[in-house]
Amino acid sequence: MLTGMHIAVIGGDARQLEVIRKLIELDAKLSLIGFDQLDHGFTGASKEQLDEVDFSTVSAIILPVPGTNLEGQVDSIFSNEKIILSKEILGSTPEHCTIYSGITNAYLDQLVGNTNRKLVQLFERDDVAIYNAIPTVEGTIMMVIQHTDITIHNSKVAVLGLGRVGMSVARTFSALGANVRVGARKSEHLARIFEMGLTPFHLENLAENVTEVDVCINTIPYQIVTSDVISKMPAHTLIIDLASKPGGTDFRYAEKRGIKALLAPGLPGIVAPKTAGQIVANVLSQLLSEDLSGKEGNESCN
């Protein structure tokens, strides 16, 4: 239980509603910032403006999966309020306050560094990323069906990267009957691709391996689907980029060539927000409980 623990939930999308429900079940005291346009309320949680929260009693701040932008703004689909997570706000929290975010960026890293606060990136955890790959794959399948005029079965699919998402994408598309080839750099990844019964290739040879693809799915968060690679693709190829913004594709050149390229980060929150929210909520509740137990243990020792 999280009885007596004051938690600020700042911004987000429908996934955050599952987080709020879970934390209320655990008897936490919640301040909800950026939820003023939410139709329904939550018993045990209060909707507040940023300047109304007493951050000196806040033990944890929960940000949306994207965290902040590079100016410190936190987006919320439930509010038009401009929410900025500033050094002053974070500095007014207790020293033990922990910030939870899906991912981070230069602004957030600098902010926690300057205020000496702890930042936990949930999507750096293997369990969250692997669970989250399930709705990501389902969303990818949906997009391929919507944006092609062929079946997935017997189509030629290239998957770039064999990380936690790439592995799930490759395995699922293969199970649906696609002819899947997977690009990677590490020798152990190339061996795993072969063991999975798929066709491996080194990413240095990417351009030669997209000359006949129907669908190219990128999971690598830096520009790898370059103009040179796109120039080798058939005109009907569909590119789906699952990497975090700005993705790993030269979208300008793809548009110039008439190739459809879609940036699709955050698919779980779009196609299955309830499930995606429950994944985050379950891990968060575990981490917060451990955090509270640790603080109570330290206090008893003192």
Rank of each mutant, 00 (worst) to 15 (best):
H6S: 10
A8L: 05
A8S: 14
G11V: 05
G11R: 01
G12I: 11
R15I: 05
K22R: 13
K22W: 04
L23W: 07
A28E: 08
I33T: 04
L38T: 05
T43S: 14
T43D: 14
G44Q: 00
Q49A: 11
D54T: 06
S56H: 05
I62T: 02
I62K: 08
T68A: 07
L70I: 11
E71W: 09
G72I: 08
G72W: 08
S79G: 14
E88L: 11
E88C: 11
Y100H: 04
L111C: 00
N116R: 00
N116C: 05
L119S: 06
Q121R: 08
D126S: 07
I130P: 04
E138H: 10
T148Q: 09
T148R: 07
D149M: 10
I150K: 14
A158F: 03
L160Q: 03
R171A: 11
F173T: 03
L176C: 09
N179S: 13
V180L: 09
K186R: 15
S187H: 12
S187L: 12
E188R: 09
H189I: 03
A191R: 10
E195P: 05
E195I: 11
E195S: 13
L198G: 07
E208N: 15
N209D: 13
V215A: 11
N218R: 12
N218V: 13
T219V: 11
Y222A: 15
I224K: 08
D228Q: 14
K232Y: 12
H236S: 08
I239E: 01
A243K: 09
R257C: 13
L263R: 10
G266N: 09
G277H: 04
G277E: 03
I279F: 04
N282L: 04
V283G: 02
L284F: 13
L287H: 08
S289L: 10
G294L: 04
